[in-house]
Design a protein around this nucleic acid. Sequence first.
DNA 1: AGAAGCCTACCTTCTAGTAGGCAGACAGTC
DNA 2: GACTGTCTGCCTACTAGAAGGTAGGCTTCT
Lengths: 196, 196
Amino acid sequence: MSKLSNTSDEILTSARNLLISGGYNGFSYADISDVVGIRKASIHHHFPSKVDLVRVLVQQYREAGIAGVAALERNVSNPLDILKAYAGHWSQCIEDASKPFCVCALLAGELPSLPPEVATEVTAFFRFISSWLTSVMERGAMEKTITLSSAPDIEADAFLATVYGAMLSARAYGNPTLFSTIVAPTLSRLSPIVAH
Amino acid sequence: MSKLSNTSDEILTSARNLLISGGYNGFSYADISDVVGIRKASIHHHFPSKVDLVRVLVQQYREAGIAGVAALERNVSNPLDILKAYAGHWSQCIEDASKPFCVCALLAGELPSLPPEVATEVTAFFRFISSWLTSVMERGAMEKTITLSSAPDIEADAFLATVYGAMLSARAYGNPTLFSTIVAPTLSRLSPIVAH
DNA sequence: AGAAGCCTACCTTCTAGTAGGCAGACAGTC
DNA sequence: GACTGTCTGCCTACTAGAAGGTAGGCTTCT
């Protein structure tokens, strides 16, 4: 199926977990070595350099994001429900502490000091999410299932900012439920105005 | 006036700049040494350990924040204008690239891997900003100069999330003006509803 | 035979941090 | 005014350990 070995995946997974907790400079090959139970040098066999590792990691992260979004679009037709599902995804990740932060949100913070190869991947991820959210907003506005108060692309970026900002706040306060609390009003603001 | 020497201040300033661009693990005493024009060992004379340095840095950052907020409250009476001024402050910092990121927003991302002494200071900063924004929201609601759609503390955290998320997006796209673009709709949503 | 996967052993550079010395500023004292 | 002690700020020189990375050898699978 996949052309990457099992170990390769384990390395990527542990690297992602370490990355999520402390950023690019917050982990080393030795840390991965401890988790995976493999020697440092063996990691270099799979990923010659740290830049390679993280670049592949973010690349895969973006591809997984694209696949996830495609699946979401297939299963949910209502644009507002898509936004709710997207927010719900993160809400769940944060609350069960499985993936309590977006890899690219964290790396975006460190962007100015990131190796250019990695930085490029990170901005590509942002462009993808942003353009996808824009398309959702546009469709919602057309179908009148989403209430926009600004242009679709601005609403998309604002929504993303709120989601990522909420992630940050949840982490800062050590309060996972805060994420939903912050995002909920934004979702209800985007909901269609009910007749009264 | 201040009991910290000039050099001490220079170290803190350059440390802050380095911190803003790459986070806690993204800079070293050698980097500071290069900027300030002092030997590494001399930095240890002022700040025995890196934890000391960053703890003091965040402490001072919070104190400066408290002072800044106090000044803002003194000069601007309208709660909505206070929010606008707060957003405007960051907008300016980002656009002239002087302080294009909040120290604590960046550190909050790295929180799980931060030394506990630093982590404590970071969460204290968030608590301060959040409770201040809550008080602004409350006053605005009372005076009917701010339109709230949720409880004041939730609106405060949501506003902060948007501001910090907008910071991140501006950095991710390398587009400083994006900050204002994202924050502006939030501000107008909080504006009093005009009679029609 | 050869490639894949992992190993030990090693290298260089960077990391935070220490030890100890030296020059100047500022006392107090004779 | 010279004589002392001490404190501050900075220096050179050094340490131990961690960083990312390399060389080369040993199995195992194809």
